[in-house]
Measured scan of single mutants.
Amino acid sequence: MEVVDPQQLGMFTEGELMSVGMDTFIHRIDSTEVIYQPRRKRAKLIGKYLMGDLLGEGSYGKVKEVLDSETLCRRAVKILKKKKLRRIPNGEANVKKEIQLLRRLRHKNVIQLVDVLYNEEKQKMYMVMEYCVCGMQEMLDSVPEKRFPVCQAHGYFCQLIDGLEYLHSQGIVHKDIKPGNLLLTTGGTLKISDLGVAEALHPFAADDTCRTSQGSPAFQPPEIANGLDTFSGFKVDIWSAGVTLYNITTGLYPFEGDNIYKLFENIGKGSYAIPGDCGPPLSDLLKGMLEYEPAKRFSIRQIRQHSWFRKKHPPAEAPVPIPPSPDTKDRWRSMTVVPYLEDLHGADEDEDLFDIEDDIIYTQDFTVPGQVPEEEASHNGQRRGLPKAVCMNGTEAAQLSTKSRAEGRAPNPARKACSASSKIRRLSACKQQ
Rank of each mutant, 00 (worst) to 15 (best):
N380L: 05
M127E: 14
K235T: 02
D53Y: 11
L80R: 02
V372F: 07
P373N: 14
G242T: 00
K235W: 13
E293V: 06
V173L: 01
T209V: 11
L263D: 02
H168I: 01
P373S: 12
R86E: 15
K41T: 09
K311Y: 06
D284P: 00
A76Y: 01
I322N: 14
E407S: 14
N259W: 05
G385L: 04
V197R: 06
R383W: 04
C158H: 13
P314E: 13
Y340A: 14
I192W: 01
V114C: 01
Y49Q: 01
C278E: 15
E121F: 04
Y166L: 04
S401L: 13
Q37W: 01
P281F: 09
R87A: 01
Q159C: 05
A218Q: 09
D358V: 12
A410S: 11
A153L: 01
G227L: 03
E120T: 11
V128N: 09
G288C: 06
F255A: 10
H313P: 03
T24S: 07
A198I: 00
P281T: 12
L427Y: 04
R40A: 15
R86P: 10
M139C: 09
S283Q: 13
D343H: 03
V173I: 13
E130W: 00
E145Y: 07
C391G: 09
E121Y: 10
C278K: 14
S422T: 03
L164H: 01
S404H: 14
Q371A: 14
K146W: 02
L386W: 07
L182F: 06
I260F: 04
S240Q: 04
T363E: 15
L160A: 06
I360Y: 13
V66D: 01
V372L: 11
L167N: 03
E223D: 05
A218S: 07
A200G: 02
H379W: 04
N90L: 06
A377G: 06
H379L: 07
R40G: 08
L182Y: 00
R409C: 09
M125I: 07
V20T: 14
F298S: 05
L286P: 00
E121L: 12
G268C: 09
E14V: 06
C151A: 11
L54D: 07
G394Q: 10
I303S: 00
K41C: 12
H168R: 04
W239H: 01
E57Q: 06
R39L: 12
S428A: 07
H306A: 11
G233D: 14
R409M: 08
K262A: 09
P339G: 03
Y156E: 07
G242P: 00
H107I: 00
P38W: 04
G61C: 07
C278V: 05
K44G: 02
R40C: 11
Q123S: 12
S240M: 05
Y340F: 06
E291C: 09
N412L: 15
S419L: 08
C73L: 08
A406R: 14
T363H: 08
Q112G: 05
T71C: 10
T402S: 10
A347S: 11
A410D: 08
A347W: 14
D348Y: 04
E349G: 05
K311N: 04
A429T: 05
A153M: 00
K83P: 15
C132S: 02
C430S: 14
V150W: 03
E351S: 11
Y292D: 07
C132G: 02
A316R: 05
K64C: 04
R87L: 08
K108F: 06
K96D: 09
Q214R: 12
I35R: 15
V372K: 15
A273S: 03
V320A: 13
Q364W: 04
L101V: 04
